[in-house]
Amino acid sequence: MSDPGSASVVGLWGLLLLVSAATYVWRAGGVAIAARISPDGRLSQWFSCVAYGMLAALISRIVLLPVGILAETPLVDRLVALGAGFVLFCAFRRNMVPGMLGAVGVFTVLAALRENGII
């Protein structure tokens, strides 16, 4: 099997270095700003809200408008799985484990049924 990346292995390692540095700048930037603001202050709380907002936007985008492999699964499967997870989450007094396992379990069953042409 020919490996398309092997021709540029040196280039690929260099690229890895560049990508690692390019993603690390955000972490370092956070440190640099954190040293200059009050930890219990309003600005710090606001940044925490922004982090939650970004993460929620990312996750809801992955579930509703995915790319790659998840994009090949029907939206209704993802939503039904998510709904089932929330029912279990609430039934088990806001325990995340049954919620998560329930959602993924339902999703796996639906995907397997579709792959085998049952639904």
Partner: peptide, 8 residues
């Protein structure tokens, strides 16, 4: 997202 995360 790591910027606001590391900050908080």
């Amino acid at each position: 997202r790591f910027l606001p995360m590391s900050l908080s």
